[in-house]
Structures are given as structure tokens and as C-alpha cells.
Simulated scan of single mutants.
Amino acid sequence: MCKALIIGAGGVGTVVTQKIAANPVFTDVMLASRTKSKCDAVAAAIGGNRVKTAEVDADNVPQLCELFRSFQPDIVVNVALPYQDLTIMDACLECGCNYLDTANYEPKDEAHFEYSWQWAYQDRFKAAGLTAILGCGFDPGVTAIFTAYAAKHHFDEIHY
């Protein structure tokens, strides 16, 4: 069985939390965000006291580590803002947590749409015996896969 900690209580965080809470493989589920009241609303909508909530600043590695050490998740699912990926990854490494995100890191002031910053963590996660799964959401991940499949199997040509 597995303990999951989701960081980010926006639209994607709400869906991720609903899906994880519905899956019996996850024995404990926590949703954390800068605004605990958003987490509480998501937990209440799911019902059944299935989801615990917490307030955390995803820009603050010591605060993230405090939460990780108290909850002890097997996996941290990052659906926070893209510029927060590296601090969450740093906290995962420090606390021995596996990591998953749905989008790639972007500096706060400029979108680059590349994984080089996160790929630089590969050896550190490997040495720690941890898994980091990057960009498994629709940004662009699955969308690009669906488009490539459609282009290969369903269309003669695609213009945009």
C-alpha cells in the first residue's frame, strides 16, 4: 500500500486528488497547498475523511521537508506551479520521497518548455534509489503522444 502527497489544490490538483483518493492502492492521501482552505474544500467534496490536508509553501524546501517527514509519503505528486518543481524535487531528495509531476520546470519569469533543469537531477535521484517521473500530464506529454498516434494511424496529413 502507498501514501500519496499531492501538492497543488487548483483544477489539476482537484482531479488528481479525486483519482488518487478513489484508488484503493493508496492507503493515505494528503493534499497540500499554500491555501489550506482550498485543500479543505477539495477534501470535503470527496468526502469520507479520505483526504488529509495541510498548508505548505512549495517555494520553501525546509517547510516541504517538515511536511514530508511528518506525513512520510511514498510518492509526492507535484501539480503546483511549474517554477516550483525544483524546490519540490530538492525536498524529495532530502526526505527520500519518489516524485511525479505533470509539467516541466519553467523559470518564474520566462517559459522555456525544456527539461534540462530537471534532467540534471537524474543522477541524484538514481543514487538515492528514488524515482522521478517528469511531465506525465498533458503539458505536452500525453497530448504529443496522442497527436503522433493520430498522425500515424488516422490522418494523411496534419497542418497544425
Rank of each mutant, 00 (worst) to 15 (best):
M1C: 09
C2W: 12
L5S: 02
I7T: 04
I7P: 00
G8I: 02
G10P: 03
G11E: 07
V16N: 00
T17F: 04
T17G: 07
I20L: 15
P24N: 15
P24H: 08
T27C: 05
T27N: 13
D28S: 12
D28K: 13
A32Y: 04
S33E: 07
R34F: 14
R34E: 07
K36M: 12
S37F: 07
C39L: 11
D40H: 08
A41P: 06
R50H: 10
K52G: 11
Q63W: 02
Q63P: 02
C65V: 07
C65Q: 06
Q72E: 10
Q72K: 11
P73S: 06
V76H: 00
L81V: 08
Q84A: 14
Q84T: 06
D85H: 15
L86T: 06
C95Y: 00
P107C: 06
E110Y: 12
H112R: 15
E114A: 13
S116D: 15
Q118Y: 05
Y121A: 04
Y121S: 02
D123K: 14
F125I: 08
A128I: 04
L130G: 01
T131W: 00
A132I: 01
G135A: 15
G137S: 10
D139Q: 09
V142T: 12
I145Y: 12
I145Q: 13
F146R: 08
T147C: 12
A148H: 08
Y149F: 15
A150M: 09
Y160H: 15
